[in-house]
Amino acid sequence: SPPVSMAELDHLVQIISKSHLETCQYLREELQQMSWQSFLQDEVESYQNKPREAMWQLCAVKITEAIQYVVEFAKRIDGFMDLCQNDQIVLLKAGSLEVVFVRMCRVFDSQNNAVYFDGKFAGPDVFRALGCDDLITSVFDFAKSLCSLHLTEDELALFSAFVLLSADRSWLQEKLQVEKLQQKTQLALQHVLQKNHREDGVLNKLRCKVAVLRSLCSRHTEKLSAFRAVYPDIVRTHFPPLYKELFG
């Protein structure tokens, strides 16, 4: 395929950054207004005292809300809607939660190790009732490490698109087409990193993050199946249908 021109890369960066901001769920200005308010001790305890299944359901609802914004982001990526339906579904099933984890660094307060959740900023202890402390710790560590890269919105947008358009997902029917899209997106990501004068180590660090995202998502699936083994009815009747469709 012909080499991609600078103009085309600029255009791609523009489109993907615009889509990212249109579908990012929380604008930076909104977050500033929230003045990074943390939960008070009694609020933390009310989450910790929730029944395990109630906390799981609340988190499933929040994750599903975030995923719906990621689906809208994907639909706006040049070329995504030209893929066959099967591949659009495969990429979203495998990648939407990964992009939610990437986006988490936008609503993460590294100083206090807290993430925006259910109206305020929550530390790992808020999620204790889930019974997944090890996974929660890893998710917070991931958010903190991604925050330390201080990615701009357009870098975050391109990295999110790069993660979503992973050509190595199983069950892809037109793998070559996805590969071409992912390569163009990677070039656009490199382009924006150079334009922003980021040292070239950042791209390699981002590539390493991809492996961590995979492990976080497979651990989420393991935790879900362990939870569902104990509370099958709760998942069937009280979890968001989209969550079940993606992770069922």
Binding site: Q68, V71, E72, M81, Q85, Q88, I89, K93, L242, E245
Partner: peptide, 14 residues
């Protein structure tokens, strides 16, 4: 199968 994802993908990106 995946009827919700199909539905979301069909909805126009208004």
């Amino acid at each position: 199968k995946h009827k919700i994802l199909h539905q979301l993908l069909q909805n126009s990106t208004s």
